[in-house]
Amino acid sequence: MTPALINLAAEASEKQSAEVTDWAARLGWVAGLLLFVALVYWLMRQGWKWRGELQSGLPALPTAPEHAGEAKLKLSGRYHGSTTAGQWLDRIVAHGLGTRSRVELTLTDAGLDVVRPGATDFFIPAAALRGARLDKGIAGKVLAEGGLLVVTWAHGDKQLDSGFRSDHAAEHAAWLEAIDTVNSTNTTDTTEGAAR
């Protein structure tokens, strides 16, 4: 045999075939990963339920009266959730307030009607409105500065902040003014009633 053939035979014997995939180990890893994801999802769901139970003392949401009056303003957009007033990360989930959805807001003399397709509708009486501001975030949602209309209102013995975003952000300024007008009218009426 010539030295070239010996070298070729040596190189051929050194080459090994590719490793065969160990399907049992791979399937074990996939099953373990799926179980981990299911556990994390279950823990998140339990946390949501637990938070709802902690907030179960919150009274039921009011519904709109039959004759709420003429609409002053209307807004179409998104409802991003409610939190304890001043604590933008303390999400309220009781009575469906934690469910994000599309929203149709209507401001009347009687209050703020919040209609949410696919979620619980509610009504904020004019006497419960405490004010409105533009903000950048509420639990689970952060937008550009001033991109969120936050309405502060009283519900039971709690003050809540509810976050809304209009499909047309230019509408937010008109809403701030209108809610502040309703709030100042209610404050004046309450003060005059107390003075009598």
Rank of each mutant, 00 (worst) to 15 (best):
P65K: 09
P62E: 03
A10C: 02
K136T: 09
P125D: 13
K15Q: 07
W42P: 00
N183V: 14
S166I: 11
G118S: 03
G146N: 08
G146E: 03
A9P: 02
D161C: 11
E177M: 10
S56I: 04
R102Y: 07
M1T: 06
L107H: 02
G81F: 00
W175G: 11
W23V: 06
I138P: 04
I124C: 08
S162P: 09
H168S: 13
G77V: 02
L176R: 12
V40K: 03
Q87V: 05
I179V: 15
D189V: 07
A60T: 13
A128P: 10
L134N: 06
V37T: 11
P65S: 11
A178Y: 04
T2I: 02
V182N: 02
E66L: 15
T185W: 03
L89Y: 15
E192M: 14
D161Q: 11
F122A: 09
A128C: 13
T190K: 13
W23Y: 12
D161G: 08
A18W: 09
F122H: 14
A4E: 08
V20L: 11
G118Y: 15
V115I: 10
E19D: 08
Y41V: 05
P125V: 05
P62Y: 01
S82M: 07
E53I: 00
E19A: 12
S82I: 01
S17W: 11
D90S: 15
P59K: 10
A174I: 00
L149P: 10
G96E: 08
